[in-house]
């Protein structure tokens, strides 16, 4: 009952980005994936979400091989994600941006979407109020109809978490959510992640910032040069000599 990658290898030309990597996240668990720049964190993240396909090994969701499924298919199966750089229509309202998150769970026909008094209309009111609840819960803004472009980077990251949660995922994959945001937003974010795990979601947290992850994770995996060098309790991984060396730059890691 996990989301797992086993024996995953990816190379870009001559560069080995991932070499026989195995990670797995269980429901209710917060797994921190750390590593210096160029360690292969993002490549592994892309592999799990479906942006890129592994050249060897497989990605499994609760026993089912999903290596060949598209990003869209995986979202529908319950793998929610956020982006390193928030991706959303900055011109739309905060409410609309969050409401987009309900889409993977909806099967709406175009005809229904176009017609007045249709099922889509009733759904719309329901979605709107659920989005407003999420906005309140995450303290995104006082006015859900205001433009998303007015939010700070930290709030945009929170918005992405809220949007991902709207799709009712079983696994939540976060790509460097804490980079470049202030302490207040970081605490809000940490609460949101803990709450999600408490509700039974498996959370994969990809971070460059070891401190934030160590504080939050139940378990950590450290990647260096495309290989897993340490895995286990945060305290243990943080103290691992290879991890320390990689972060301190004793090993020169190609970007």
């Amino acid at each position: 009952m996990t989301l797992s990658a086993t024996g995953v290898s990816i190379r870009f030309g001559g560069l080995v980005a991932l070499n026989n990597v195995a990670v797995s996240v269980s429901p209710g668990e917060i797994l921190g994936l750390v590593g210096p720049n160029g360690a292969g964190k993002t490549t592994l993240f892309n592999c799990l979400t479906g942006v890129s396909k592994p050249q060897a090994g497989k990605v499994q969701l609760e026993g089912r091989d999903i290596s060949r499924l598209s990003l869209a298919d995986r979202v529908r199966l319950g793998i929610g994600r956020t982006f390193q750089t928030p991706r959303l229509d900055l011109g739309s309202s905060v409410a609309d941006a969050v409401m987009l998150g309900f889409n993977p769970r909806l099967r709406q026909s175009i005809v229904s979407a176009c017609l007045p008094f249709s099922k889509a209309r009733r759904t719309e009111d329901d979605l709107s109020s659920r989005a407003r609840q999420l906005i309140a819960e995450f303290q995104l803004t006082a006015d859900p109809d205001s433009s998303a472009g007015e939010l700070s980077l930290g709030h945009l990251r929170l918005l992405e978490v809220a949007r991902a949660l709207a799709s009712e995922p079983r696994y939540l994959l976060l790509d460097e959510p804490a980079a470049g945001i202030d302490d207040v937003d970081r605490d809000l974010l940490a609460d949101a992640i803990r709450n999600a795990a408490a509700r039974g979601l498996g959370v994969l947290l990809v971070e460059h910032n070891v401190g934030f992850v160590a504080e939050l994770s139940h378990r950590m995996v450290a990647l260096v040069s495309g290989e897993v060098v340490a895995e286990g309790k945060p305290a243990y991984v943080v103290a691992d000599p290879q991890v320390v060396a990689a972060y301190l730059g004793v090993h020169h890691v190609a970007a």
Binding site: D89, F102, C114
Partner: peptide
């Protein structure tokens, strides 16, 4: 509608739409 937001997402960013 949800469909309209999907289409809007395609314009903003295809990767967003897929996700």
């Amino acid at each position: 509608s949800a469909r309209g937001r999907s289409l809007n997402a395609i314009r903003v960013d295809r990767l967003l739409a897929e996700s």
